[in-house]
Design a protein around this nucleic acid. Structure first.
Lengths: 222, 222, 222, 222
DNA sequence: TATGAATGAGCCTTCATTCAT
DNA sequence: GATGAATGAAGGCTCATTCAT
């Protein structure tokens, strides 16, 4: 239940309702926000689809904004669980490969959340996302940075690599991959680039290849 | 004036007004849409900031949707002009380098348009972007694909490269770069990855390096 | 409360509010529609005159069109109740006489509803009236037709009468009478034809006389 | 050109333009007003369909209201020509028969004008119609009244007839007939009363029969 | 005179939020 | 705590009318 707390965007009562109800609310809200965008999303619709009254909605969350933030926060929490799964488990390139695989899985399984993240990066939601990112983005950055630092240490990657840039690049690849498998626009775009029959496995392979060529030590320890 | 036509999202009258007025309207609309997003953008505000009446607005554009599309289309047109400048001018990596430079320039000079593009990729605006892309002539995809094909032909890049994937990767890099220099959220993110004192030149250099390591021919022909 | 249902042009909530409030809304809407016509009628005005917010108005009715239809339907329902009172009560000519009397009464008491009917027959509102008539159960036509058929059977009227035409004529007389006592234009017209001091009783007498002369059996059975 | 003057609802310039242009304007306005009703009718549409600018429209007519009145007035003028054709031409019942025939003809040929008349009798246009009716209704009333008076004088109809009421009845019949052949709503209604295969000739015959039974002298001058 | 772009008040409808029950 | 009816500000769009050219 840790994921429920955090930014504390909800009211206390929300922690006391049944898990089922809470889940329904998250589900409903996620879907509406992902589909309609923050502004066009309708709180009344969210409530009724979640099977609760708007009155109840407002006893759980003080405002539309907070509901949105709670949802977004939860999305990141889910993704962070994936990251947690990756830490210190295997070699750098294997970890990267798993990262890409899990990203696709996440994108497909949590489409709404993934779309939400795009929505979140949008300018108008900047104010909102600041409140979020302050608390969460850091984790990702740390993950990538530490992953690279460790790999560098271990000699798995080039010693002259710019870790800051490389971390950003990894994140970029992950984000792009995520959207490619969850957001209609980017999905369409991907298909037009690589063709409809391009498998996920190939996609991951290509990405790993890219990372490898970029980061592998110059001289293969012959 | 070519950029004004295209998808023909405006009414005829709009072509007959002074360049100055037209520019003001574009400016005002761009800004509002980029700042507020499509749904929250207020046509009345756009009109009044452009110094015209809403009535006038509606003699120029049949609807909010069309105004938005006209704006978006214009953004693409501007970027396409930049790309046009790059075609067949120099070697592959030099072209790529210039591409990154120009992208940053575009992102900084046409911040609003750049942000609009993010907005456009959003799920809710899918219908709109379809209307847009249906009407766009040359595509970015073609540009990247041809650039790579030519380079491959000339032996500037590896012969075994997957052009489809490579093109997507180039596009990804460009998009990410663009947002990093125009969208607050991504800009903040970039700074936290590479530090505030990371110059544009370094960014470009890093990117070119990435592309080079990924695409350069196996140098050891020995 | 039967009159409230029917075409179901309102939302459920509307059935749950107090009779008083409901009546006020009907009253206000009727008046506005009758006075201004469908297009010019202002929903905001209707709401505020009914003492409710526009928001409330829209929780009761999904649209202006439906509000109008609900009102119109109610008008018909009221008139139908009057007709119901007439069925099989007395001889043909007595019934007709009562019909005329009741029509005048209705026109004077429910002026707005009566005016609405004129509005409804108007070309632009054709679509609406279709939606209305589709849902109406018993029809005036049936009433007139059966009344005449029964009278013919009983020998109260000529046996060679064209029932279809006679029914239409009766309806025409009733409609004209109704408008003459509710719509300013037709009222003025009536007065100029028969004079201001022409009483309702005389009017009815004249009408009955007309019907009698037209439909009475050839009295000379000799 | 008498019909152009009258209520003088137009500006002077209107009298100086070509008959063709004038006719087009009338046509266009009539159609729009008849189809959409006064309020919903769009002056800009009328102008453009008439092939003139709105600017021109406003140099011909000072306002929408006046345009409407001019149109309505013209409609009556046309109908009055028909009446003129009937005066003192034949016996009462023959005249009546011709009146019905001409009414149907008028309704079918000048559908728009006929519909306009319905629109005009509507409550909200009461203010407008007053300006009209003062000048014109009289003619109709006089026509019917004199027709009946003459017939009474000549012994063609009952001597004890109430001329005021009879005149109104004749007018009612004519109006109802007119609408039955021009207004969708009333046309549909007619067909449901008398059947689709009821010919115009039968309709007229039925009407003449009605009038005859009502007004013919009691004792046929054997 | 003719033109048609410009004006802006006005209208229907939505929806976040409140609050009496 | 839960309910859901009520609120009313706000926004996209129309159209009669004006007026500079």
């Amino acid at each position: 239940m840790k994921s429920i707390n955090g930014g504390n965007f909800h009211k206390e009562v929300f922690e006391r309702i049944s898990d089922d109800k809470r889940e329904k609310i998250f589900e409903s809200a996620m879907h509406e926000f992902a589909k309609e965008g923050y502004v066009a999303a309708n709180i009344n619709t969210i409530a009724s689809k979640a099977g609760i009254s708007i009155g109840a909605m407002y006893t759980y969350f003080p405002s539309k904004e907070n509901l949105f933030l709670a949802i977004a926060e939860r999305g990141v929490a889910i993704y962070q669980e994936i990251l947690a799964d990756l830490v210190g488990r295997a070699g750098f390139f294997e970890t990267v490969e798993r990262l890409f695989h899990l990203t696709i899985e996440y994108a497909k399984e949590h489409t709404d959340l993934s779309r939400l993240y795009l929505e979140l990066s949008t300018e108008q939601l900047g104010n909102l996302s600041v409140r979020l990112s302050e608390k969460m983005e850091i984790d990702f950055r740390e993950f990538y940075t530490e992953l690279l630092a460790a790999a560098k240490e271990k000699g798995e990657i080039r010693s002259d690599v710019d870790i800051g840039f490389a971390a950003k690049m990894l994140d970029d690849l992950v984000i792009s991959l995520q959207f490619s498998y969850s957001v209609s626009y980017y999905n369409e775009r991907m298909q037009q680039y690589v063709g409809e029959d391009h498998s996920e496995a190939q996609m991951v392979q290509n990405l790993v290849d890219l990372v490898h060529r970029y980061l592998a030590p110059e001289t293969m320890p012959a």
